[in-house]
Design a protein around this nucleic acid. Structure first.
Lengths: 208, 208, 208, 208
DNA sequence: CATGAATGAGCATTCATTCAT
DNA sequence: AATGAATGAATGCTCATTCAT
């Protein structure tokens, strides 16, 4: 049945193209959101940023909020992957932490726009309640993921007598601090270069 | 001249009332901004949050942006005061750091709404360029203030071999992390209770 | 009864003052209306132009429209007076016309603001129907007054075979033309200087 | 290439329709402006007068002022054309004047609304300075055009010893007078019927 | 599939007017 | 008599979204 084959091939090609278009749109949107914020970004601005007209976006997404959701979901998926990636069992906690940071900072560099945007939104900014939940979940869940990772990869002695949750927010805070520093410098250096400093500070603090 | 006395007294009472109303409005606005963001907060919402009608707000402020500016200015003024407050010269660096955190966390608790709002805005989100500058200045300047404070109150050995700027963003990041934790818990505990943990982590890291 | 006398005196003084204030207000309003038009002139602008606050104007007038009506009424009264003033019976038609123009142009110079304003409004611009009627009546009635005056002071031969109404609009048009010329020059010359030209043109046209 | 042909045809049809809609809108706006003045005319009123919603007007114009500008520009263009139209060289000054009036009064009848509106606005009423300049230029320039036309088409003897400028404002005034008469009659007669009377009055005045 | 056109809902802001003082 | 404060009604304009083509 060559016809079916052709049909299938066409359908697949179409699907692939559609996926690609969705990618283009979410990336453009992330850039716009990062620059101007969610409310101040118009559908037209997103459309112009990826060579469409505003109405065309509705072919690929249900609306502005749906685009936003797609960005967050992608971010969430990728973040989860980072935490799930395997670590050589022979490594010390310090080495593991360094490797995690390496991977996380690469992830952060790659999703800079979306993360800038997210760091602006964090609590209760979305129009719909549903979106709000997505939002919060995806930010807090990032911190929870850090907690879980630490729980899994550390022994008690490595955390001193600190509560696990405190440690999670501590580690996240330090990362966030260096992220903001990186942004304030224009984001043109290599963020990953900060890994040694971060690791050292987190493990040993300011004390020499 | 009892007449003049009466007139003056009246004028003063009016001025006092007007100041009070301005306070009510900025506080309500900070709450709204924190909850929904700048753009999504309508003048009407602010008005309802403080028992006015939208048009009445224009008796006290030139417009939405003016309210925003008032919030930022107040925040900025108070933050500056905190860093300027004197410290007993006999204290060690650790003790000074603890006292600074104590004061900063009190400040943060008192201005929770405005700070949540600010942490949402940080880069380039305001309608007017002027507001943007105000915004950025007030956030980055907070971190710079930390750097300056550390520079002034520490000797070289206390910072290990870390760059001053790194230390500033590190300290700010840790504070921010615990701020977010506090918010995620509903902001109903005492934030100041975290001072010992924060100080210990910053100075010694996770290592026991 | 000295008390009553005092009371009466006081009341009269009050009334006189009130009249004076009303005058100040209408004059200021005429200036504002002439400059910016009826709608674009705010009560506040009028108030500032005569040293009051907006709410104080309501002590003397029922509102914006009432101020407008007062201007028009005054204008109307004065215009009527001009047409009613007596003319030496020995004068020729040409002489009478010259004298009328003299008086009218003096009137126009004296009420410049109000007339500029009126020439902007002429048909159906007012919010209320009542005001509209006042408006129209006072403009058209001016032209009608010219017609009546001509009817009374001319014999048939002076009008050639032209219809009385045509003559009225003709004469008014010529006056209006020179009024506009005067305004376009900044209104700083003597409008009355144009009387000879106007009279000559109206009676003999361009022909030498 | 039938496809391109179709596309082009479509684009052209669309452009034609858009032009037509713009026409509808400016005409409706002129009517509204004439009736109520610039400020008192709302975008909603204009929209209703041509079967749109207020927001739809923004598809065709940048805003209220842009609609106004379009009206004035059209008026200005057409007026210029009238003065530029050729006249048989054999005609006497009187005949030329009659022909000019004929053409001008036809123009006036055709643009009645816009002209009523313009005669309301003449000095300094527009929100933007730019619009004000446009406004003034287009009214004074009309009178100037009359002056230029007379200068070109008359010999010295035809103007008697009158200054050219005086003659220009005189002629304009007479036309304006008959325009107002026509309006006061409801604008339902033929304005062009007045040409003989106007010409006779302008050339010979009232004298028989 | 892409889009120009159309629209309803909503927003910041203005303003004439009222009223307590 | 004079006014600061308060407000409802209205206005120009924007924008996410729909729909016919």
């Amino acid at each position: 049945m060559p016809r079916d084959a052709t049909k299938e091939a066409k359908a697949e090609r179409r699907a692939r193209l559609a996926d690609h278009q969705r990618q283009q749109i979410t990336m453009a949107a992330a850039r716009c959101f990062a620059e101007a914020g969610y409310d101040a970004t118009t559908m037209r601005a997103i459309a112009e940023a990826c060579g469409f007209t505003a109405s065309s976006l509705y072919t690929y997404f249900d609306g502005k909020e749906d685009i936003f959701a797609a960005i967050i979901e992608q971010l969430s998926t990728h973040a989860t992957e980072v935490f799930a990636r395997s670590l050589p069992p022979s490594m010390t906690f310090e080495q593991r932490l360094e490797l995690l940071f390496m991977r996380l900072l690469e992830f952060i560099e790659a999703h800079r726009d979306a993360l800038v945007f997210m760091s602006k939104m964090h609590h209760g900014c979305m129009p719909s309640e549903e979106a709000n939940v997505t939002m919060v979940r995806s930010e807090v869940s990032f911190i929870r993921a850090i907690c879980d990772w630490i729980d899994e990869h550390s022994s008690d002695e490595e955390l001193g007598d600190h509560a696990l949750e405190d440690v999670g927010f501590y580690v996240w805070g330090v990362m966030h601090g260096f992220f903001v520093q990186w942004l304030s410098e224009g984001g043109e250096t290599k963020l990953a270069d900060k890994v040694p400093v971060m690791t050292k500070l987190i493990l040993k603090g300011l004390r020499p």
